[in-house]
Structures are given as structure tokens and as C-alpha cells.
Nucleic acid binder design. Structure first.
Length: 291
DNA sequence: TGCCCCCTGCAG
DNA sequence: CTGCAGGGGGCA
């Protein structure tokens, strides 16, 4: 589900809502969803919430909890004053937790009870996601885990030069597949890779080696623009994604190609094509995305 | 660099 | 029933 924009939206929400609270208890409903000793979290105070690539980072004084939502993960925040989400649901536009049903639900894997009686649910239908608890002593925190990852595309370290250098390590790879490589740029997933190629006017099948300098420039700008738009519209809610209070994202309404197979291109009117690249569905406009 | 796999559920 | 889904680790 989540790519950089969706994880960023969750991060922003959690930063405003759980920092300063303590962990009251953790319940593991699926063993493989939590790596590490969850009991260590008891009574620990949350001091920071961050993001690196598609990974959420929740910081404690001597511990860090990493969360990767993979394809179907959700973080749901249930405020303490809401006893029964179904009876207290709003009508019309307000975010509600209704989309999650009763909580915990069938796909809830971990429950984190917080000191003010609010609750975090880690839901993950496909069980690909994980929570990992790291400690300072293990030396895993920070560089070792994230060491090989490329730059944050919305951060200061992401220059055109760095982008070109990293991308060109994948010379024979189709450009859209190379954009998915987290060592090239961190945080791009299938939706934003497709959108980036469209914004750059580049055929997603084109090998990195064959890209002109102008195309590299436009890809660089396209990455930043598509990701910023993703955040601006609250993320992509194809199936699973909603922010922690149940608000869905609207980005796919504004997407140019992703999910628009056989629909007219918003730029030229010709029909959007769907192909498979690197095993992933890939959408593009054969008129707008050519040499 | 390209599969297969980890899973569950939904659409065709 | 088959195939597909916002990810990515491991293996040849």
C-alpha cells in the first residue's frame, strides 16, 4: 500500500498525536508481525516520530520501533474518548474509523495501548509488513539498517547530480524499474514511479542508458512533483490506505496514468496502456511518453 | 539482473 | 478457478 507520501501522512499524524505518551502494553496477535522483545516497550515514553523511505520510525529514549507497512499495512489511531466507532460515526466527509470495522478486526496483527487510553492498531491483511524493535546497543539503529538506501527525494541531499549518479548505476534497467530501486532513490513505489515517467514524458520501458540529459532532468523534477502531490492530496487510497484516523487519500483522482488503463490520457486523449515491467503493472501513455 | 516467495482477498 | 494487488528479501 504505502509509498513515501502515504507513510509521510501517517508520520505527520502520529507526530501530532502520540509524542509524549507512554506505551501501556503491547499485544501481539501475529507472531511474525513483530520482531524483537515487545515487552521492552512497556512504560517507555514516545519521544519522536520520523520516516526514512517507506519506514516509520518511532523513537524512545533508548529504543526505536521501525514499522514497514509493505503492501497492505495500516496504522489506526483510536482516541480514548471513542468507545464505539460505529455508534459515534460522522456522516459526510468527516474521517471516521468505520472503514476499519470493529477494532481489532480480522487483519489486526499488533495492538499498542497508550498511556491516555488511546490505542494504535497495526492492521495488515497480507502479513508482509513488520514492526521491528531496535536498541542502541545492538548498533542496528540508523546507519546499519538504512545504510544502503538512496537519498530522501524530498530532502536536501537529493540533487540532480546525485540522482543521475545513482540512476546510472542501473544502465540496462528499464527506467521505471530503476525508480523502484530504493538504493537509487528512497521511497518511490509503483504508483509514483508510473506518475513520474508520465510527468517526464518518458517511456517506462526505456533503458536508463538511453535517457537523454533533458529526460533525466525531467525525471528528477517528476519525482519531486508526483511525491509532493501525493502528500498534498492525502495519499493514494486504491484499496487499503487511509490515514490513522480513517481519512482516505484522493491522489488517484489526480493521477495521470496509474489505474487508468483504457481511459483517455488527461493530456492527449489517447488510451492509457497497461503493461508489465519487472513483474509489476505499469501504466503509461504511448503518445505522451515517447522519444 | 530476474524470478520466486512471503500472505490474504477480491475481481474477472 | 486464475490472476492480480501501494513491497522487497533471497536466491540462481
Amino acid at each position: 500500500m504505502p509509498e513515501l507520501p502515504e507513510v509521510e501522512i501517517i508520520k505527520i499524524f502520529l507526530a501530532q498525536n502520540i509524542v509524549g505518551l507512554r506505551i501501556k502494553s503491547v499485544e501481539i496477535l501475529n507472531e511474525k508481525s513483530f520482531i524483537g522483545d515487545f515487552a521492552l516497550l512497556t512504560d517507555k515514553k514516545i519521544i519522536s516520530v520520523g520516516r526514512r523511505a517507506k519506514v516509520l520510525r518511532i523513537g524512545f529514549e533508548s529504543l526505536e520501533l521501525l514499522i514497514h507497512l509493505k503492501m497492505s499495512g495500516q496504522i489506526v489511531f483510536k482516541r480514548h474518548e471513542i468507545r464505539d466507532t460505529r455508534k459515534h460515526s460522522f456522516i459526510g466527509g468527516h474521517p471516521t474509523l468505520d472503514m476499519f470495522g470493529e477494532l481489532p478486526n480480522k487483519s489486526t496483527r499488533v495492538i499498542i495501548n497508550l498511556s491516555d487510553d488511546s490505542t494504535l492498531f497495526f492492521n495488515d491483511q497480507r502479513k508482509f509488513g513488520w514492526m521491528k524493535l531496535l536498541d542502541h546497543e545492538s548498533g542496528v539503529m540508523g546507519h546499519e539498517f538504512f545504510g544502503k538506501m538512496g537519498p530522501e527525494p524530498l530532502g536536501d541531499g537529493f540533487s540532480l547530480e546525485v540522482f543521475k549518479k545513482n540512476l546510472l548505476r542501473r544502465k540496462k534497467t528499464p527506467v521505471k524499474v530503476a525508480l523502484l530501486d530504493q538504493e537509487v532513490v528512497a521511497g518511490i513505489g509503483n504508483i509514483y514511479a508510473c506518475e513520474t515517467c508520465f510527468l517526464a514524458g518518458v517511456d517506462p520501458r526505456k533503458k536508463v542508458l538511453d535517457l537523454h540529459d533533458k529526460e533525466l532532468q525531467k525525471l528528477y523534477e517528476g519525482i519531486i512533483e508526483s511525491l509532493k502531490n501525493g502528500i498534498k492530496y492525502g495519499g493514494s487510497s486504491k484499496t487499503h490506505f487511509a490515514n490513522p484516523e480513517g481519512k482516505k487519500g484522493l491522489f488517484l483522482d489526480y493521477a495521470f496514468v496509474y489505474g487508468r488503463e483504457k481511459l483517455p490520457c488527461k493530456n492527449c486523449g489517447s488510451l492509457i496502456q497497461k503493461i508489465k515491467l519487472g513483474g509489476r503493472g505499469t501504466f503509461y501513455c504511448s503518445q505522451c511518453q515517447v522519444d
